[in-house]
Amino acid sequence: MAAPKVYPKKVNIIVDIESLDTAHNAAIIDIAAVALYEVEGLPRYFNVKVKPSQYLGHTAFTANNATRDFHEKQNPGYLQECEDQGLTIQEAALELFSFMQSYNDVFELHCWSQGKDFDFPILSNFMKVAELDVPWNYGKVHCLRDFVWMNPKCRIHPTPGSVKHKALDDAVFEARQLHEVLQSNSWYQRLMS
């Protein structure tokens, strides 16, 4: 008989977004989240695109041509991909809420992003407009960029073939960075379990 799996009390979710502006109320076109470790019965990866056309005439969100041009230059056809595969604002927000809440129901949820002062205010506005509560606690939102910077031995490079500035590829890379830092120091391992 196999021994039951034992999980830590805390779960780390890495979040990445792509938006059409850099303001706190930027229009989001791509959201991804990756759980640091696989948990039986829960999805490890989350990715949803939002139709850019959802934002036309919407006063709660901003978009600018420079950011649109940036995305088209980085990933030609990306905006059309988001339009073709994307959900409505409400549908995408509900999907994100459900993914995060599935972990929040079982664990103490900790969220990470490359710039917590960028991603989470934008996501908070997105959730507010969709009339949903944010499924994270602000005291448990962390900046991965600072964490990696404080650990210069952590030098992970993107996986060959991954595409920068696509939310899921970026979130997977960032999860690998967080994993490397946590594995490099037993103090971090105790802190995050």
Score class of each variant (00 low, 15 high):
P8F: 01
P8C: 13
V15F: 03
V15M: 05
D16M: 11
I17R: 11
I17L: 05
S19H: 08
L20C: 08
L20Y: 08
A23N: 03
A23M: 02
A23H: 06
A26R: 04
A27K: 08
I29V: 15
I31G: 12
I31M: 07
A32D: 03
A32Q: 02
A32H: 00
A33G: 12
A35F: 01
A35L: 02
L36P: 00
V39G: 01
Y45P: 00
F46S: 01
V48M: 05
V48A: 09
P52L: 10
H58K: 05
A63W: 12
A66P: 00
A66V: 09
Y78H: 14
L79E: 01
C82F: 04
Q85A: 10
G86S: 11
T88V: 15
E91Q: 15
E91P: 00
L94Q: 15
F99C: 10
M100S: 07
S102C: 06
N104D: 11
E108F: 04
L109V: 14
S113W: 00
K116E: 06
I122C: 11
N125C: 09
N125E: 04
N125H: 14
N125R: 11
M127P: 07
C143K: 05
R145I: 04
M150K: 05
N151A: 13
P152D: 12
R155A: 10
V163Q: 13
V163E: 05
K164Y: 04
L168H: 02
D169L: 03
V172T: 13
V172W: 00
A175M: 04
E180A: 09
S184D: 10
N185L: 00
S186G: 09
W187N: 13
R190D: 03
M192Q: 11
M192E: 09
